[in-house]
Structure formats: structure tokens, C-alpha cells
Design a protein around this nucleic acid. Structure first.
Lengths: 285, 285
DNA sequence: GATGATGTTTGAATTTGTGCGAATCCTTGT
DNA sequence: ACAAGGATTCGCACAAATTCAAACATCATC
């Protein structure tokens, strides 16, 4: 059976030259709706989407098939989860958001963290940003007992406590959800230090730079990037071409990008122009 | 066909919906819920999960089998525990030392903490010292969502994160065992503040004052006692007549002592002379 | 009418629920 | 300490429910 778009072969994403009437937007809008839902909650259900978008479940399934072909999501029984290996991801009604974020793209983050840990080996002073990927990195650093680790994440500090020799935190108010410490005083305490290497997580990356959705944590990210010899950004591939609330820095604001898949061409070029080394940790292990 | 809860009669409230339900949690969502529970509590029970997720116990068991195959947990009779290699997110299985201390005199500490929590009710700024009793107190403060809580214990901060509105930490190096933050900079950050009430734990008390075995934490204890309107010492009865490494303050350095049994006569007299109010929480509640 | 997207039907595939015997755990008695 | 008894939990096998996707019908636009 030939799919309705089967003859296309290539995933051409032309803006559809359909002149006047905007009937096409419907499908397009559904796709956007689905993807944005995925981005915010990590999972979608066929029935729920059908109800939200006032279309049949069959249509939703066809949408999901299309989006899966483009690699934007992974279909599972009953719905879909955002890209990454099957079996993981999702949010929960009443449980911490963080845990859900941690599960999303778990394998990718794990691989990224492993590569980052290799990079950090031997460094004496290591700065760790807030985030789920950096938390996984922290766990890989348990062995580095001779390093001093600086982080504004209480979660990471608590995790490192039992294993790593020296953990330093800035002072200030702790954010509830993220368990990060931010604010002016916190930034001041760290900005006079100098780190051998800093690992910063982001929530989006475009040709114009790296982004994060957290207003409060951005200042500290900037400090990390400003005050370290080697500036490493951890960013799984789902975050390419995605902007967020706050612009952290342009692409030449860091040295190394560790990710799990090749970035899209424009970003790849921009990274090359900015002299950023790109480490891609592939799926095949 | 008899429902699994059929004998209960009415109160079953299953969200019976039409085909486009989306109410039953996706398999992945259940997995997340389970892992997340595991991360926060350490163990899960089949029955409880089935109730939480509104699915049959069989389904939960199948989930657990799947997750065990992925190595994310270890199944035990009646439920599952988290496997050692995936450590918990918020706070880890506290190291033996701390856990042991927490168990020692557990009931006494719990009662003391409860009395302290009553004392703290309504206070706007609360300082919490490091220690096992103060940790129990922190857990009783989960409801006090309008208070600002200051502590140099990362353990307490992590514990409070999910429940209490505002938690403040000083910056500095974290001690491994106690997960406390100390040092000159930490002390400096707190000594300009003023607390409504401060709770300080001690490891010994004699007629000459209160003592602690931790060299690093004493300075912060002194700050708490110096900078708060109400200075409360938490001290279970086993610590009377015991000295420790460091002398924190004389008996007139605080206002209220909460303990679980009447202190020996000499100390009682010395406390009376120092104008300390003694709250004894008896075994009979 | 041709084209392409969407809705509907229907049987297959997958997931979930239930019954019931076996296994395990817990308590109690000796 | 060991065994018996009772209760709970497990997991297989099968039934029920849900979801999937192919085939076809329908609708809209050009």
C-alpha cells in the first residue's frame, strides 16, 4: 500500500506553495500542537489529541506516523513520546517534574554525560550547572575524588556528597522545583573563581546561540562560561532549533558541544564558524 | 463479572469515558511514576502503585518486570526497591553514620521535633542547624509554606525542597559526612541576618554549657544563637552530662531547651539560673 | 472529476484484567 | 529452633478491553 506521501521519497519540507486559502495549516497546526505538547509534557495520547484537536483518532495516528518519519517523536502504544529510545519519558500528574525530565532522552543524556566525564578526567576544579544531564554527569564523576566540584545545584551536591571529596555551593535562595541556588549573592560568590572546566546544560540551541527556560539560572550559567578554561555545553539533539525564554550566550561563548546526534546543517555551520568543537556520541556502543 | 473492588459497592470512581479516553495512564507514565516514587522513597509496593495508578496489580507486576529487565529496579516480594547503581535523585540513602544517628533515640527525637515545630508555628524566618533532630524538625515544617527557612544543612534543604516555599543556604564547602556547609564565607553570609527563631542541635550538655563534636559546624551554631530572637536548643536526654570536642556556648546563651526527660539536678539548676525555659516532651503523648 | 486529506468500519495486534493454583511470607505454637 | 497454619503475593493462562492500521467511504478544493 502506498502511503499518501509515499512517493515523496525525500522529506522535503517546502512551505507548500498552496496559494490563497489556508486549508493546509490544519495539518501543520496539529503537528505543531503535538510537538509542543511533547515538548512540555513529554508524552501525548492519541485519544486526548483527537479530542483536543477535534479530529478522529485515525488522523492523529497518521500525524504521528509522519512525525515519527521525521524523527520528531517516537510512537508507542496509545500515543507517542519525544524522540529518543523507546520506553522512557513522560511526566506524571503529581510527581516531581525533575524526575520526568531526567527520564526523557535518558540514554542520550547518559551517553553525553559519559563523554563529558571523560573530558573532565583529571581536572582539578570542575563547575557543574543545574540540570538533568549535569546530574548524570555528576554521578559519573563519583570517582574523581581529588577534584573540587562547584555547583549551584543542591540536587547534585546531595548526590555527590557521599563520593566526591570536595563540593562547593554558593549561598542564596533555593528554587523549589529545580533545587538550584541563584541570585545576586550566589553569582558573586562564584564569579571570582576560576574553573578548569565548566559543564553547562541548555534547553535550546539555534544559530544565534544557546538558550534556557529558567530565568533564575541563566546568570550562573554565564558565570560558568565566563570563568572557566574549557567551556562545555551539554545538549541532546532534541534541543536543536529550539529557542527558550532566555538567551544565554552566542555560539562562540563556549568551546565544546557534546551532543548525541549531528546538528542540522545551519547550526553545524554556525558552530564551525564559532570554532566550537562538536563531540557527537553515537548510539552505537 | 466481579470487579476487583466490587465488594466495596459504591465509592468506586473509575473515570469511565468514551473511546478517546486518555485517562488511563500510558505504560511509560506508569514507569515514570514508579521510578519517581522509587527515587524519592526508595521502595514501592505493588498494591499501592495499583491504587495510585488505577490499574490492576497484574499490570504493575508486568511493569516491574519490564523495569527490572532494564536494570532500573530490583523486584522483591510485594514490590520493588531501587537498584544500587541508579542512585536517588533528591537525597541518597543516607550514609550509615547519619542513618545510624537518626535511628538512635528516634522516638525521643521525633517528639522533640514535634514540640519544636509547634514552637516554630507562625514564625517568618526560621534557622535550622545541622543534625538528625533538626532534620526531623524540618520534616515537620513541611506545612509552613509561608516561612523562610535558613539552614546550612544540604540534607535539610533537599528534604524541604518539595514542600516549603523558601529555603536559603549559605555558600561554601560542603562537608561530606554531615552534608553541612561551613567556613568563613558561609558564616559571614548568615551573620547579618536576623531570625525569628533558631533551632540548634548539640551533642552534649553540662552545667558549663552546650557542646558539639563537629569543629566545622560550631561557628554556624554560634551565629544561629547570636542572631535570633528565640534561641532553642534540641537535646535528647542521653546527652546530658556529656561533653564533646567543642564548647558552643554557656547555658545562658539560649532561651529554650527541648528535651525528652528531666535533666539531672545540677543541670536543671544551672538551667534555671541561666533563665532557660525547659520543655520536656514526655513519652506519653 | 481528480486529488488529497479526513472519517468510518472492521479484523488483527497489543495491552490490561481476572481466576486460580503455586509460591512466599508472616505468625503462632510447640 | 522448627513446623504448621493462614494470609498474602506471584504468575500463568485466558478473557476482556483498548488500540492499531488497512480498506473503503466521504468531503473539500481545484
Amino acid at each position: 500500500m502506498v502511503k499518501r506521501q509515499g512517493e515523496r521519497g525525500m522529506p522535503i519540507r517546502l512551505p507548500e506553495r498552496h496559494s490563497s486559502a489556508g486549508f493546509r495549516p490544519l495539518a501543520q497546526q496539529r503537528h505543531i500542537h503535538i510537538l509542543s505538547k511533547l515538548a512540555s509534557v513529554g508524552t501525548v495520547q492519541v485519544g486526548m489529541l483527537a479530542r483536543d484537536l477535534r479530529v478522529s483518532e485515525m488522523t492523529i495516528r497518521r500525524d504521528l506516523v509522519d512525525l515519527e518519519k521525521e524523527g520528531r517523536l517516537t510512537r508507542i502504544h496509545g500515543g507517542a513520546v519525544d524522540t529518543g529510545k523507546h520506553r522512557r519519558t513522560v511526566i506524571d500528574r503529581d510527581e516531581p517534574l525533575f524526575e520526568a525530565r531526567l527520564q526523557r532522552q535518558y540514554e542520550a543524556k547518559q551517553r553525553i554525560a559519559a563523554a563529558a566525564a571523560r573530558l573532565a578526567a583529571g581536572c582539578k576544579t570542575i563547575a557543574l550547572d543545574v540540570g538533568s544531564t549535569t546530574l548524570l554527569l555528576a554521578r559519573q564523576l563519583h570517582g574523581e575524588s581529588q577534584a573540587k566540584i562547584f555547583t549551584n545545584s543542591v540536587r547534585i551536591a546531595a548526590d555527590l556528597a557521599a563520593h566526591t571529596a570536595e563540593v562547593y555551593l554558593p549561598g542564596g535562595r533555593m528554587r523549589r522545583d529545580e533545587m538550584s541556588i541563584g541570585g545576586r549573592t550566589a553569582v558573586e560568590q562564584f564569579q571570582d573563581l576560576w574553573f578548569d572546566i565548566a559543564f553547562v546544560g541548555v534547553s535550546g540551541m539555534t544559530t544565534s546561540g544557546i538558550f534556557d527556560y529558567s530565568f533564575e539560572d541563566v546568570d550562573m550559567k554565564r558565570v560558568y562560561l565566563r570563568r572557566s578554561s574549557m567551556k562545555v555545553v551539554l545538549c541532546d539533539a532534541s534541543k536543536f532549533e529550539r529557542m527558550s525564554l532566555v538567551h544565554i550566550a552566542p555560539l562562540d561563548g563556549f568551546d565544546i558541544l557534546i551532543t548525541d546526534a549531528a546538528p542540522p546543517p545551519q547550526i553545524a555551520k554556525a558552530l564551525a564558524d564559532a570554532n566550537v568543537r562538536v563531540d557527537i556520541v553515537t548510539d552505537t556502543d
